[in-house]
Design a protein around this nucleic acid. Structure first.
Lengths: 185, 185
DNA sequence: GTCTATACTGTGATAGAC
DNA sequence: GTCTATCACAGTATAGAC
């Protein structure tokens, strides 16, 4: 692995674990076995390192949103969303845990904007506050679950496939028209 | 409002908005119209200020967990949980967004521990991975929704009461035995 | 491509005057 | 209770030798 790629991986892992602000270039350099200056040779600034770490996941996310807006295919969106969560655990963790505090960073701006577009899309398909909140709980909950599974390891190791199927099921249920169970006796 | 209380309120708001690490004592002092030193007269350190900001919400959370463990009353727990979310929006926002990066801070340690106790409680009542994930999505999603509603204001101002009822409904549905809709035609 | 040395800024915190 | 002055330190970033 090139120094470039290795630094990106280290940065992503440390930014996700300890937080962007709390992670110094010094620490990243130490883990890589380099000096601070060498790190800054590969990436011209700390923020450039953050950009590089997040970018692939961000682009996947943005293209997912575009496909949803173009096709309105909800089932495909849900599958793509869950797959994105599973594939980019660390980046999701960062987004969930630090998007708020990094709102002035370009790459997080774009991620936030994409999230807003999803919210706007679902808001435009319904006028019920109840359904809008179901969307929020579903997508936020799935992302949050992935983010925290990465933190606490108390689950008896559910397999990736099992996780994937369960998440798709739960999100699909929440995004479907309300079953109105109580009013059909 | 006393300086003491005012500083606590400012700190909570800034920590939640910009993040703990990214908020300097200087900034808090400026907002309060004081000097850094005066801030440090009221709270002996930055972390002491964080403790004071979070403590009331944390105690409410811990007592909620204790009541759940003692009574196993799920409905009461869900109501209490949602009410806690609505009452302590800023603190929830902080917990969701920064618990990971502040794990070495005492007050967040306790909050994390309480969250783990909830997860352990629900894990002990079922052996199905599917149900465990439903718990995670429900509680995480509700907390995440509250945290992000505070960020983006794109919702057409859902009332507190409406929000409360919707959240309780959604969480209750997710924590109920799976309806198995597809296998009962 | 990697290093040492350095500049500069901002941080949390302390001491002591008022 | 609030201030100014000062501290020691860590932060990002740059310059230049090798």
């Amino acid at each position: 692995m090139s120094s470039h790629e290795e630094l990106r991986a280290i940065a992503l892992s440390e930014f996700a674990r300890a937080g962007y602000a709390a992670t110094s270039l010094q620490r990243i350099a130490e883990i890589a076995g380099l000096s601070k200056s060498s790190v800054l040779y590969h990436y011209s600034s700390k923020e450039a390192l953050l950009d590089a770490a997040i970018m692939p996941a961000l682009e996947g996310f943005e293209s997912l949103v575009e496909r949803l807006e173009a096709s309105s295919d909800r089932a495909a969106f849900i599958e793509g969303f869950v797959d994105l969560l599973l594939e980019h655990t660390l980046e999701v963790h960062m987004f969930v845990n630090q998007a708020a505090s990094l709102e002035d960073v370009l790459v997080f701006d774009r991620a936030n904007a994409a999230a807003v577009r999803i919210a706007a899309y679902f808001a435009s398909t319904t006028h019920s506050a109840m359904e809008r909140m179901r969307f929020g709980v579903a997508l936020g909950g799935a992302a949050y679950l992935m983010a925290s599974q990465h933190q606490y390891q108390l689950e008896p190791a559910t397999s990736i496939d099992e996780t994937r199927v369960a998440l798709i099921t739960i999100v699909t249920e929440l995004l479907s028209p309300v079953p109105v169970r109580s009013t059909t006796p």
